[in-house]
């Protein structure tokens, strides 16, 4: 395997009762690229996402990440390895402030335990201050630091998306997985999102993107994979994928061909 491969999924299969959601899906994501995963509704994109981020366990298949095998089905270990994600339907901690949401994202990188927390040892204190500073930095990075003390549920839709990205970044990922980040956004918000993703790529982060907005994917992604009925039917640079007859069939139906 070449050095520039960050993540390699091999033969991932997942069944729900009688439904085969994923059928031997393999794909590779290279370091520093924005990788798009598209497909019609119900093609298995989110299922794949959930396997990759540990919320589901896979029936078959394995994933190597940065050369090591991922413990599928154990989200905290996957986050620890350096994959973090956002959700299609935004999932923030509603009762917390924006800042605290991001601070929760740091959880896995922190060490303070019960004793440290109760005694507020110098180490614990330093860690806490550092966490808050880092959280502010990330809020600034996604452009919403002025909202740090707002309750998460009071943020506008676009800002909630940004907050979720900041929280995901707080875990210190090498791969950031975004589940339909542009869903429900207007043109201005989508443009802002696109700029943010490009900024993250420029800063060396690898991004996996599920998206419905084909235009956004084709414009933003370095490479794209297409899922249909739980199978990967194409994986290449956008220009090639765009002309792939199987992809056209999947999207437009057989009659249109």
């Amino acid at each position: 395997m070449s050095d520039d491969v960050l993540l390699a999924a091999r033969g991932i299969s997942k069944r729900f009762g009688g439904v085969q959601a994923l059928h031997a899906v393999s794909l590779t994501i290279r370091r520093g690229e924005v990788y798009g995963l598209i497909g019609p509704n119900g093609a298995g994109k989110t299922s794949f996402f959930n396997v990759l981020t540990g919320l589901y366990s896979a029936d078959e298949g394995s994933v190597t990440f940065g050369g090591a095998t991922l413990a599928l089905g154990a989200p905290h270990r996957i986050v620890g390895a350096g994959i973090s994600r956002t959700f299609q339907n935004i999932r923030l901690f509603g009762a917390m402030s924006a800042l605290e949401n991001v601070m929760v994202g740091r959880h896995i990188r922190l060490r303070t335990g019960v004793i440290g927390a109760i005694l507020r040892t110098p180490a614990a204190r330093a860690e806490e201050a550092d966490t808050a500073a880092r959280a502010h930095e990330l809020l600034r990075y996604v452009g919403i630091d002025r909202l740090a003390n707002q309750q998460a549920t009071h943020l506008s839709y676009g800002d909630q998306r940004r907050l979720e990205i900041a929280r995901a970044l707080a875990t210190g990922p090498r791969l950031l997985a975004l589940d339909e980040p542009a869903a429900g956004m207007n043109a201005t918000e989508t443009a802002g999102l696109r700029a943010l993703v490009e900024k993250m790529r420029d800063d060396g982060l690898t991004v996996l993107l599920i998206e419905h907005d084909v235009k956004l994917v084709m414009g933003l992604c370095d490479r794209v994979a297409v899922l249909d009925y739980g199978e990967k039917i194409a994986e290449d640079v956008p220009d090639v994928v765009r002309r792939d007859p199987r992809v056209i069939t999947a999207y437009l139906g057989t009659e249109a061909v």
Partner: peptide
């Protein structure tokens, strides 16, 4: 308490 799935996704 607020969202267990999101908490897991945050690495908790």
């Amino acid at each position: 308490r607020e969202d267990e799935v999101a908490a897991r996704a945050c690495g908790i």
